[in-house]
């Protein structure tokens, strides 16, 4: 290795390392702060100062004790909503995406343009009419109310369409010759081949569900029904303020998604990229 090459290696690695440190900084500071009284952070902001002798696990105890373990209820709600949302989302969007990719039918291109349109319109624009709709269906403060407006995710359709387009059509032909029905072909032959796409989409949808705030905040009214993001956010309001639980709760709320990511990094990054390349 010549000198120039070593210099470039050091410089490039250093630049990337700086950005990586910035990326991880919030986790580090909030983790450290979660061992100190929340009021300290509220008053003084986050500071580059570590007085380890004052650290304690008091905030983590509140997860069990605060309001009869309300935090654990939020956790359970988040998990249940995530499972329902990911399950229904995967099922419907793969069905539609596959249909769009593998069949030629009247209205196919129009439908795909509509999918793109839904993808492009921010849901936030529709929060008022959707609220009225969910209210009319008497689904306010229910899991179903949170899930229903996102039950056929357009991004999922787009993703599965892109993926299925690349799969050999011969599989369908041979399935037909073997006497498989069209749905048999999908469920028995294509679904297994599409597993990587399901993997990537699972993480993507799970992430969206786990972290979503605005819509659940509108639908879920009582504290017992709330999910982690809105529950935690409610701890910041003048009424429910409990900054100690806020800190430990925020740290605990990132853990599952972080673990899932660290275990499936390759699938995740590859899957995420696959949806974007052929836009």
């Amino acid at each position: 290795m010549n000198k120039k090459k070593i210099g470039l290696t050091v410089l490039a690695t250093l630049i990337i390392a700086i950005f990586a440190v910035i990326a991880l900084m919030p986790f580090f500071f909030l983790f450290i702060s979660s061992f100190k009284p929340g009021s300290e952070m509220i008053r003084n902001g986050l500071q580059f100062k570590f007085d380890f002798e004052n650290y304690s696990l008091v905030n983590y105890g509140l997860i069990n004790t605060e309001r009869d373990g309300i935090y654990k209820k939020w956790y359970v709600n988040s998990i249940v909503i995530m499972i329902l949302q990911v399950g229904t989302g995967l099922f419907f969007s793969s069905l539609v995406g596959y249909g769009l990719a593998k069949y030629r039918f009247k209205g196919r291109n129009t439908m795909f343009i509509l999918v793109l349109m839904v993808m492009m319109v921010p849901v936030e624009i529709l929060i008022l009419p959707l609220y009225k709709e969910i209210n009319a269906l008497k689904l306010i403060d229910t899991y179903a109310g949170v899930i229903l407006p996102f039950i056929v995710p357009a991004t999922g359709i787009f993703f599965f369409r892109q993926f299925a387009s690349g799969l050999p059509t011969e599989i369908m032909e041979s399935g037909r010759i073997d006497g498989c029905g069209e749905f048999g072909i999908f469920f028995k032959l294509m679904m297994p081949i599409m597993l990587p796409a399901y993997g990537a989409m699972t993480i993507l949808l799970a992430m969206g569900s786990w972290n979503s705030m605005v819509w659940p905040m509108i639908v879920l009214r009582t504290s017992e029904m709330q999910t982690l993001p809105i529950g935690l956010q409610s701890l910041l309001t003048p009424y429910g303020n409990n900054y100690d639980l806020l800190l430990s709760g925020a740290v605990m709320s990132v853990l599952p998604i972080l673990i899932i990511f660290l275990l499936n990094q390759k699938t995740f990054i590859a899957g995420m990229a696959a949806g974007s390349v052929k836009g």
């Binding site: 990586a20 990326a23 500071f29 909030l30 992430m207 800190l247 709320s253």
Partner: peptide
Amino acid sequence: KSALFIPALTSVVMAGLF
């Protein structure tokens, strides 16, 4: 790459707090 990707996983509540 993994380190740079991790912020996207965080909820806006946690990031907002920071």
